[in-house]
């Protein structure tokens, strides 16, 4: 399983792997919003948590269809399905690789983009914490959507339609953490909810995604 993780990471960082695409998209979005709504702090500060989380969510969505589609095209998925490692493990590892190449760079870059949106300094640690806790759920749910749509031609749109509704709870609690952090409130409750969602998703989704893959490989 470690070798699968290593392979996916090295594929993502080589030419045409799409590493950095999510961060670039995130940067463009956060740079465009001040042009759209005006650069005033009073206009930007209230919407900053929402913009940051919606941006992270859409950036994550960009590379979701690559999780299984590329392996399906070149036959690797068939071979992985007959390999000694369980398909649930394959799903978990590929979602982890997606998170490392997409979610983790977003977490690292988020404070910089927070400055662009006039997010107060007191909210920065909460921004990083909420993304760190929430983005693994985005990758895992995305792997589920990718498993359902693998093998479909132009499954990208269907994938977005399937996955975005599932992202809503993560989005709500993620932004609530930052909002409470910015107002110096107590973010403990939304953090616990967000962590609970992520834990549940990470525990259950590999089984659902592996079942979907088995049906799609037939």
């Amino acid at each position: 399983m470690l070798s699968l993780l290593k392979r996916d990471l090295s594929l993502a960082t080589r030419a045409g792997g799409g590493f950095g695409l999510a961060v670039a998209f995130f940067l463009i979005l956060c740079a465009l919003v001040p042009f759209g709504v005006g650069p005033a702090t009073t206009a930007l500060r209230p919407i900053a948590p929402g913009i940051l989380w919606v941006g992270a969510l859409l950036a994550c969505l960009l590379s979701l269809d690559r999780i299984f589609a590329l392996d399906h095209e070149d036959g690797s998925l068939d071979l992985l399905a007959t390999a000694p490692i369980p398909l649930e493990g394959v799903v978990a590892v590929k979602a982890l690789a997606h998170w490392i190449t997409t979610g983790l760079p977003l977490v690292a870059a988020a404070p910089l983009f927070g400055v662009l949106l006039h997010l107060p300094g007191s909210a920065m640690p909460w921004l990083v914490a909420s993304l760190l806790i929430g983005t693994p759920a985005l990758s895992m749910l995305g792997a589920f959507g990718a498993a359902i749509t693998v093998g479909l031609r132009r499954g990208g749109l269907l994938l977005s339609l399937l996955v975005l509704p599932l992202y809503i709870p993560t989005l709500i609690f993620g932004t609530e953490i930052i909002r409470r952090g910015a107002e110096r409130g107590d973010p403990a409750t939304p953090i616990l909810f967000l962590a609970g969602i992520t834990a549940g998703v990470v525990a259950l989704v590999p089984f659902a995604a592996a079942a979907a893959l088995r049906v799609n490989l037939r």
Binding site: S3, R7, S10, L11, S76, A83, I85
Partner: peptide
């Protein structure tokens, strides 16, 4: 776990070298 399957698609990654492709499958199996 008795079967090694090979079909029309070879399961190769274009960005990896011959050795890397082969080492990956050797480690997986």
């Amino acid at each position: 776990d008795a079967v090694a399957y090979a079909a029309h698609a070879d399961g190769l990654k274009a960005a990896l070298t011959v050795t890397e492709n082969l080492r990956f499958w050797a480690e997986i199996f």
